Amino acid sequence: MKNPENISKVARLQPDYMGFIFYKKTPRHFDAEIPEIPSKIKKTGVFVNEAIDVILEKVKKHDLNAIQLHGEESAAFCAELKILFTQTPVEIIKVFSANDDFDFKLLKDFENVIDYFLFDTKGKNKGGNGITFNWEILKNYPSNRPFFLSGGIGPQEVEEIKELQTYFLKKGKDNLLYAIDVNSKFEDQPGQKNIENLEGFLKEFN
């Protein structure tokens, strides 16, 4: 999210999370004040290989409820943040770029120091590539840690998402696919969401 008016309009749709990108090398870079939005919406700061003190400053300034780490942050880095967030709970979402050769063993060291994993499409950009990866690989997901599904998700992926939900439900793991992260396929321009398209997408899951 980027434009205050657009932020307020999206907030009326009551998403569970709303993302604000504090990575300067993207047209979606957020450098403004977040307008007042319902407290049930978790304000999420997106960072890429950022210093801990900068993350803490943004968390305090914008009263963030979650952070999404989209770079090469280590498990030790996440563990340090988790300790710092003990008094003021802030969810930690660690992003992994996935393709057909993704090694799920990479997740092991992060298991106990993050709240959620997020799987995005491996591409030339740090997110926002606008393409999906092969979700079939998620059927080999070895963890019990819930995850966000991201990467080029648009209205045309609704049935595939429901199929993946059904797969985990049949396995008795219906809580694993925790959230759907949508972005570029719902934008009129970077950071500017199309409200009508978002409304239609949400109705598919209600």
Rank of each mutant, 00 (worst) to 15 (best):
V46G: 08
D174K: 06
M18P: 02
A98L: 04
P27M: 05
H62L: 08
S74Q: 04
D31K: 06
Q156R: 13
Q87V: 10
K185R: 15
F102S: 04
K139S: 12
N125D: 14
E33H: 02
F147C: 09
E163T: 14
L149V: 10
E72T: 13
M18L: 15
N49Q: 03
P89L: 02
L84A: 14
S184T: 14
F117T: 03
K94L: 07
K2T: 13
K94S: 09
I41C: 00
K25F: 13
V158T: 13
V90M: 05
A66G: 01
K126I: 15
N112G: 02
F117H: 07
F77K: 00
K105A: 13
A32S: 14
F102T: 05
K25R: 13
P35H: 03
L69F: 12
M1C: 10
C78W: 05
L138R: 04
L13I: 11
S184V: 05
D100N: 09
V48W: 06
M1R: 00
N49G: 09
S74A: 09
L64G: 13
L69K: 03
A51H: 12
I93Y: 03
F148G: 11
L176V: 11
K42I: 15
K162Q: 14
F168S: 05
L69P: 07
V46L: 14
K126D: 13
N197F: 04
F104S: 08
P35K: 00
S143W: 06
K139V: 12
E204F: 01
E199C: 02
V46R: 02
F119C: 07
C78G: 05
E36M: 04
Q192C: 04
I131W: 01
E111P: 00
I131H: 09
D120P: 04
G128D: 04
L81T: 07
P190A: 07
K42H: 08
T86N: 09
K105I: 07
N206T: 12
F30Y: 14
N175S: 14
N194G: 06
S184C: 04
L69D: 12
K108L: 09
E5W: 07
F22A: 05
Q14W: 01
S184R: 01
K170N: 14
G200I: 00
V158L: 11
N134E: 13
K61T: 13
V95S: 11
G45Y: 08
T88N: 15
F85T: 08
F102L: 06
I114K: 01
T86H: 10
N112T: 03
K82I: 13
L202N: 06
A11N: 09
K24C: 09
E33Q: 05
G130E: 04
E73S: 08
